[in-house]
Simulated scan of single mutants.
Amino acid sequence: MKNSFVITRIKKIQIEVNISWFLVFSLMIYTLATGYFPSVYPDLNVSSRWILGGIIALLLFGSVLLHELGHSLVSIRQGIPVKKITLFIFGGIAQIEKEPDEPVKELKIAAAGPLVSIFLFLLFMAMARLLGYIGAPEVLVIPMDYLSSANLILAGFNLIPAFPLDGGRILKSVIWYFSKDGQKATKVAAFTGSLFGFFLIFIGVFLLLNNFIVDGIWLAFIGWFINQESKSSYQSKVLTDIFDKIQVDQFMTGDVVSVDSDISIQELIENYFYKYKFNAFPVEKAGRVVGIVRGESIKRIPAEARGRTLSGSVAIPLSENLVVSPSDTVTTAMTKTAANGVGRVLVMDTEGNLLGIVSNTDILNYLRTYQQLNG
């Protein structure tokens, strides 16, 4: 996700925070300190309200992180890698590298998050009761009570059968299991997600019209997000079903134009970018592919330095996300083009020979033709 920065890694999963998270974090502290505490705990002094608000906000987002880690760790156990977890304005999202290929896997991954939240609900409730029993200060009991309720709400909301919420994924897995049709299951679950999204937007507008400005905007925004995600999830499933059936060697563009790492950037611009009108080229050194050079990389080189700067020095080094084998599916190629930020992958055999290329343009052109021929 753009505008995010990494804070740590857990089990090789990158944990990052999006700048939008700070907005909701600040809003939560403000709401707790100026609204919740004064009405529920009027005896708390002002400084305690703000300090407690900050502590509770951090612990609540820690709960959200644990919820997403539940999904992620179960996903990894099911053989599906997880690249990162991002905390953002709507909470958290785990970037699972591919969709589960079996309904039971989908069910296990989807159920893991709410189960973690239910466990945290019970844990915080038990701690609140224990602290109350031993006569601990109210300032220690309050966060436990609040976090207990918040995790129960988090679990309950996520279990609503509306895709892409966890409940929607559970619904999808059940329909998929009995119908044996993953695309149909995704379509039904996405439809419920779209309906729920419109429902939240309607409630949000209603609240706005009745002067509940913040709550109305927030609900409408969440509804819009769920609606958009449900549609894109179904479209993604359709694409996967199409491209899972096609091997890269049947789809790639052959006769790839590559450049030598020792030519200057000026020569690269004049003899390759302007001539062939591509926005990236494979780079070879001593007959072996070593990376890809992009127009974006060249833009950062001052014009006066382009004659003495070699192409190889600005090439993106070859990596796993830049290469597919001819026997891979186009779905694999599509996943890697989305992840590598280059918009294309090189098709190479086990000996490192360059056989072809698959780009986002190839995928979009195929889809355009497919839709024309299949309605």
Rank of each mutant, 00 (worst) to 15 (best):
K2D: 05
S4Q: 04
S4M: 10
R9C: 13
E16Q: 12
V17E: 12
S26V: 12
Y41S: 01
P42Q: 13
D43G: 15
L44H: 05
G53C: 01
G54W: 00
G54E: 00
L59S: 10
G70C: 05
G70W: 04
I76R: 14
R77Y: 03
I80H: 00
I80F: 00
V82H: 11
V82P: 08
L87D: 13
I89T: 07
I93A: 10
I93R: 06
E99F: 03
P100T: 12
V104G: 01
K105M: 08
K108D: 05
K108G: 06
I109K: 12
A110W: 04
G113K: 09
A128M: 10
L130Q: 08
A136W: 09
V139D: 03
V139H: 08
S148L: 02
N158C: 12
P164F: 14
P164Y: 15
P164N: 14
L171H: 05
F178K: 14
F178A: 07
K187H: 12
A190F: 08
G193N: 11
S194C: 12
F199M: 10
F202N: 15
F202A: 13
F202V: 11
I203G: 04
F206D: 05
G216W: 09
G223A: 11
G223Y: 07
E229L: 05
E229M: 09
K231M: 06
V238D: 03
F243M: 01
V248N: 09
V248D: 12
D249F: 04
F251S: 06
N271C: 07
K275F: 15
N279F: 06
N279E: 07
G287I: 00
V289N: 03
V290M: 05
S297K: 01
S297L: 05
P302G: 00
T309Q: 00
P326M: 06
S327R: 11
V330F: 12
M334S: 13
D349N: 09
L354W: 15
S359W: 03
S359P: 07
N360D: 08
N360W: 02
N360C: 07
I363C: 01
L364G: 01
Y366E: 05
Q372F: 06
